[in-house]
Structure formats: C-alpha cells, structure tokens
Amino acid sequence: MTLVSGAALAQTGNATINVTGVIGGGACAISTNPVDLGAHDASEFTGVGTSPPSGWVDFPITSEGCSADIVTIHMGFNGNADTTNSGLFAIATGGASGIGIQLQTQDGTATVVPNSTTNLLNWSPVAAGSTYPMRARYVQTLSTVTPGAADSVVTVMLSYN
C-alpha cells in the first residue's frame, strides 16, 4: 500500500492579470478641406524662389473644439519635404517638377517647416467652428519648371497642453 501526501499532489501555477485603462487629459480636434492652389503656366515662375503673381491662397484649419483645460495647441506639419528646399513640401512623384509648396500662418508671421518636431505653430484654442488661418503657395525650386499635376499631401499633427 502506498501513501501519497496531499502536498505531493498539489500543483503550482501562475496567472497574469493584465490591467488596462486610460487617464485622459483634455483633447482637441480639427478638420481641413482640400486647398486649391489653382492652375498656373510654367512661365509664371521666373526664377528660383519666385511664385506665380497670384501668390498666396488662404485656407482655414477648422476647430472641432477643445476641452476647457487646453491652454496651447501645437501644430506640426508632416509630409514629403522638397529635396532641393527642405522648407517646402514636395510635389508628388510623377507630377510637375521644379516647384514646392510653402505653408504659413495667414498673417505671414510663422512659416511651416516640414516634419519639424521643434518648429511648431502655437495657437490659443478657439471655439468649435472657428479657424486657425493659414495660407499656401507654390515656390520655384529649380531653374526649370516642368508642367504636370502639382499635388502634395500634408498631415497636421496636434499636441497640446
């Protein structure tokens, strides 16, 4: 006859408890519409650094609202930078060449630097439906401008405190 103690039959094991959650602060949301810089003849560009005579096109970034605890909104702008002038956004591959796209605040006091994490546009929050006024234009980057579609995609990144 064999005796087996209860301790010998006990098994040990581990269990993991995954705890999840979010401690949120305030939040902001924005929206944009496509920006149409118009149709231009390549001859309107007369040298590196020039723009068509029509110049800037104003456009809004619209507030969808911010929580009451938000003090400052920081906007960064991500997209492909022009290979000749890294301060401009590149035209999509297969389109026009010799130009880039410049973005600024509408009053011209701040110029967007593509993909910068330090040179951000800082705004006080505005009510839902109000806007953060901006402007855009084409700028010649090479000695020759080649015709074609002159499109680009820019993503607005928000952080706030």
Rank of each mutant, 00 (worst) to 15 (best):
V4I: 13
S5K: 14
S5T: 13
G6R: 12
A7R: 10
A10K: 13
A10R: 12
A15W: 08
T16M: 11
T16H: 08
T16E: 12
N18E: 12
N18A: 13
G21S: 04
I23L: 15
I23Y: 11
G24Y: 09
A27C: 06
A27K: 13
A29G: 15
S31I: 00
S31V: 03
V35M: 00
V35A: 00
D36V: 02
D36K: 00
L37M: 04
E44Y: 00
F45T: 01
G47D: 05
G49Q: 04
G49M: 06
P53A: 15
S54P: 03
V57M: 00
D58E: 14
F59L: 01
P60H: 03
T62A: 08
T62S: 13
S63L: 04
G65W: 05
C66Y: 04
V71L: 14
I73K: 07
G76Q: 13
D82S: 07
T84P: 00
T84Y: 07
G87L: 11
T93Y: 08
G95W: 10
G95R: 08
A96K: 05
S97K: 11
Q104T: 03
Q106L: 01
T109W: 05
T109S: 15
V112R: 02
P114G: 05
T118M: 09
W123C: 09
A128K: 12
A128L: 10
T131W: 07
T131M: 10
P133N: 11
M134Q: 05
R135S: 06
R137W: 00
V139R: 00
Q140I: 02
T141S: 10
L142E: 15
L142S: 14
S143R: 11
S143K: 09
V145H: 02
A149H: 07
A150N: 05
A150H: 05
S152Q: 04
T155Q: 14
T155K: 12
M157I: 15
S159A: 14
N161L: 12
N161M: 09
